[in-house]
Design a protein around this nucleic acid. Structure first.
Lengths: 239, 239
DNA sequence: GGCGGCTAAACGGTATCCCGTTTTGTTAAT
DNA sequence: ATTAACAAAACGGGATACCGTTTAGCCGCC
């Protein structure tokens, strides 16, 4: 892997893990020293991160860590809902291939199995998050609309916008499991709609599905102190 | 303006105007000489253009001019439809401010005036395209969802995805005027839906509105030879 | 003690240089 | 004449040097 990609990933992880304070100045030289590279790859990474919306350039061209309002995060989740809803509708209207059908069913089965235990182990939780990402990615890939995939990819660069970023992580595990059971039931129903070719229903489910993420976001903001321990990136969100 | 931004814009214009053949190799040095700059600003521009989807890096890291299938263009237009539909719904549900109401009405009035003449002059055509962009931008700005605005901005970087890129430009002017009258009537109806707070209707109109662009894209592809004279960027589209 | 101005350090934009790799063109052998 | 091999040119990734501008710290003056 090229140094440029390495620096980009490192920098992205540092920002998303709340290593820098929002609004903090990101100087090329200082970052280069910290990451053990020269300014060239750091500069390339900063250009990319600006496109991704994680850093912004002020009027004099200096880069700052972006600060997000709670409103922006919930808005990004809403956008993901609409885009995934569109993807679901396209898949439903275009038909579910045998292959996709099998892959989705595997996700559903794995989710059923993982959520069977109560309380959930941390391993089950992590595995569910991975499965959840796979499930959402499957539908997005199956819709075949590259522009749509690009839009989701961009949106998912924002903190807490991706599907699994806002899975319940705080509070009592028992309560989290209830939410996850609800969300997973939605997965089942979405697959049902896809199989039946019910485009409008699939789209509506895709949109509604993100309301779970919205709930969790609100919860995380109410319990900000605790949330920041589990999700350091929460430091980037104000209000 | 910095040399970096200048080079970026020049390069983007060169690509979008079909100056390079799709799939053509874009070498940093060669571009630097052509644009009268050094490799540094050219590299920054190429990184940005890759994010925008206008160039792509092959496995060895060399940059190539991106080639678009007709499917990709129509898909991008469909994505814009969904995103603008979402914006329209948000505006309708959140209420139209006095200021927005006035700005939109100004657009409608200007459109009415510009389309009154038959046949259309080329000046009227250009003025309508500018008004059309303003109209779409007004609604997008008014929805207040930054993530949504970002998604539209990214999508609009693709050739022929932006609202005014696919206004009728070819064929008989009289026929074009009919399509523009239809699209402008939709603008009127959309404003009506916004004022009444009819979110679902506004969203549906936003989506349906892009079908005009879809029609024009199909027409442009059928008359490829003529289209390329008016819209050189059509060279980037295959199939 | 606070405010304003001056100076030095830091920083971003740009150009250039270096190195390893890929590509291309040429030559020679089959 | 075609192909294979080798050499030269081109290219991309990376590092660093230079310059003009911004920033921030410090000192002196009010």
């Amino acid at each position: 892997m090229s140094l440029q990609e390495t620096v980009l990933m490192q920098l992205r992880d540092l920002i998303l893990s709340g290593e820098f304070a929002p609004g903090q100045r990101l100087a090329e030289q200082q970052l280069a020293e910290r990451l053990g590279a020269s300014r060239t790859p750091v500069r390339a990474a900063l250009v990319t991160l600006e496109q991704e919306g994680l850093v912004e350039a002020n009027d004099t061209g200096k880069y700052l860590v972006r600060q997000f309002t709670a409103r922006e995060v919930t808005d990004a989740i809403a956008v993901r809902g609409h885009l995934e809803g569109m993807a679901a509708r396209l898949v439903a209207e275009h038909g579910v291939s045998r292959q996709l059908q099998g892959d989705l069913q595997a996700c559903l089965d794995e989710g059923d199995r993982l959520l069977a235990d109560s309380p959930l182990t941390i391993e089950s939780y992590v595995a569910y998050a991975a499965m959840n990402d796979r499930f959402h990615a499957l539908i997005l890939a199956a819709c075949g609309n590259r522009a749509l995939q690009r839009a989701v990819a961009l949106n998912d660069k924002l903190p807490f916008a991706p599907a699994s970023a806002m899975l319940p992580m705080q509070g009592t595990v028992a309560l989290d499991r209830d939410w996850m059971l609800y969300a997973h039931r939605q997965h089942h129903m979405l697959c049902d709609a896809l199989r039946r070719g019910e485009g409008a229903r699939a789209q509506a489910l895709g949109v509604e599905h993100t309301e779970v993420a919205q709930m969790n976001m609100r919860l995380a903001l109410e319990r900000r102190a605790e949330s920041e321990r589990f999700m350091p990136g929460m430091r980037l969100v104000v209000g």
